[in-house]
Each structure stands twice: as structure tokens, then as C-alpha cells.
Amino acid sequence: MKDVVTLSKKVCMLGAFGVGKSSLVRKYVYNIFKEDYLTTIGVQIYQKSVTLKNKANQVGKSINMILWDMAHIEKFDKTIKTQILGASGAVLVFDLSRMQTFNELEEHAKRFLEVNPNSKLVFAANKIDLVDNNKLKMEQFLHLSEQYNTECLVTSAKTGHNVEKMFSVLASLL
């Protein structure tokens, strides 16, 4: 039996303030959710290993994800570029209950790929627990994810909906 290879990969959480980046990471790593809003300053580092199966449903590889939970980026200055440098992937998060947060995503994706051209992206439409699923117009999100050849998953850090799946999808792309 072959040894499972463990790869360490840096993943950045990007998006506007209050969209739930920290909540998604905490739900994924510690399975906790807090209603309180606490602004992140700089970058908070988390780690979580995820084991991926190959096509034969056997353990293929293990990825040690180094999650960089980043503060809201107002300006892509030198400090930010230093922080996102070397990332293999990013989760771009927006808040379904504040659709203006969706507008920032494309800029974030573009700037992130300028620094890390070969990295992979996943979009998270977060806080589904606060909106009516029936009124969601997914076309615009799908358009963006198609543009970046990736997935856009509807998530909720509160209920845990799609949180594990979203990180697994990204891990499989890395």
C-alpha cells in the first residue's frame, strides 16, 4: 500500500466586511458559529487537513489547508499583496442578504489572480439562512463562476450548509 501524500496549501478567504469569512472558517475548522460580528484585522491563520479520495474511491491525497482568513480589503496595496502571495487557492465570499457585497467579488478575483496566476477559486454565496431560497437569482453567480471555470456554492456558516463541501471542492482543485 502506498503512503498517502500530504501537501500543505495556502488558501485565502476574500470578500467584503461582514460577509461571514471568519464564520465559514470557524465552522469548518472548529464546527462553531457565533452570531456576534467581530472584525478581523490583518490575517488570522487556521489549519485543517482534508483527505481526498481518487476515482476508485480510495484515499488519494491529504491536503493540509493553511487558511488565511483575511480582513476586508479596501485597497490592494503592498501589505495585501505580501499576504496573498503564494496562495494556491481562494474562497471568494459574498453575503446573499447584502447583494452589494457581490459587486466586489470580481475585483477581488482579478487582483488575487494577478498575484497568484495559477491558483484556484471557489465562490461562496453565504448566509442562505437569512434569505428566501425561492427568490434567489442564481444566474449572475453562475455567470461569474463560469467565467472563472469554478463553482459557486450557496452556504450558511450558521447551519453549516455546504461549508464542508465548499472547502472539499476547493481542496480537490488544488
Binding site: 496549501k9 490575517v43 491563520i45 493540509n64 493553511i66 501589505t79 505580501t82 502571495l85 503564494g86 494556491s88
Partner: peptide, 28 residues
Amino acid sequence: PELVGMEEVVESILKQQTKKHDIEKINK
């Protein structure tokens, strides 16, 4: 682990091609 992904930067410092590299406001 926050240095994962910065292998090139680390190598560049060891080769003394880069004099200094800062990562600000890390929190743990």
C-alpha cells in the same frame, strides 16, 4: 505554517537575494 506557499521568498532570503520580508498583522 503561515509561510507555506512562500518557498520562493524563503529561498531568495537564504540566497541573500532578498534582504528582508515582512508579513504584517498575523493573528493567532
